[in-house]
């Protein structure tokens, strides 16, 4: 695949995650600065998209996009070396972070569907980390999104296609 097209796709994934991450940052601002209760802090788009299924589809979808990118870059790096030597590690880390995030949402949907306590919708399914640690769900998911966003930002910067270097003609006298 053309490197520029690949990079454009990486850019799209970054923009999508930026929008998502902005929701989480807004939610934190609502809770800590505006003192809105977590139950009523829905980020920018309010109650329109703050549902279990939406979060599940988004995060699993993002993981699939990241895996596709990882495979495409890996294929490309067989023939051309990455722009930075740790490029593969960066993309693998991104995939693993988002992979765990997806597992959290898969467990949340499982709890929503199959654990009696959560079936009526009275309580938000906690997933794994919030249940085990007692940490609030909104905070755990803010921190799960943070490394993903920064990894994408780093990838966008360090994996950008290099412009062909211009050779300056030298006049030999």
């Amino acid at each position: 695949m053309n490197l520029n097209i690949l990079y454009a796709r990486l850019g799209i994934v970054f923009l999508v995650q930026t929008g998502h991450y902005a929701e989480h940052v807004t939610q934190l601002i609502q809770i800590y600065s505006q003192h809105v209760t977590p139950a009523q802090a829905h980020g920018l788009l309010g109650t329109l998209f703050d549902f279990e299924w939406v979060h599940f589809v988004y995060n699993v979808g993002l993981e699939i996009m990241v895996i596709v990118l990882w495979l495409a870059y890996r294929r490309r790096w067989r023939t051309a070396p990455p722009a930075v030597p740790w490029g593969p590690t960066l993309l693998t880390s991104l995939m693993l972070f988002q992979g765990y995030h997806s597992i959290e949402h898969i467990v949340k949907v499982y709890q929503y569907l199959f654990v009696p306590t959560y079936q009526t919708g009275l309580w938000v399914p906690p997933g794994i980390l919030p249940y085990l640690s007692g940490w609030p769900i909104f905070l755990v998911h803010f921190w799960l999104n943070t490394p993903v966003w920064f990894a994408l930002l780093a990838a966008l910067w360090f994996l950008r296609p290099k412009q062909p270097t211009r050779r300056r003609a030298t006049l030999e006298v």
Binding site: T37, P38, A39, Q40, H42, T47, D50, F51, G121, L122, W123, V124
Partner: peptide, 10 residues
């Protein structure tokens, strides 16, 4: 009717 998450706000 306006609640989206969390008892008792349901």
């Amino acid at each position: 009717p306006n609640a989206t998450v969390g008892f008792p706000n349901t």
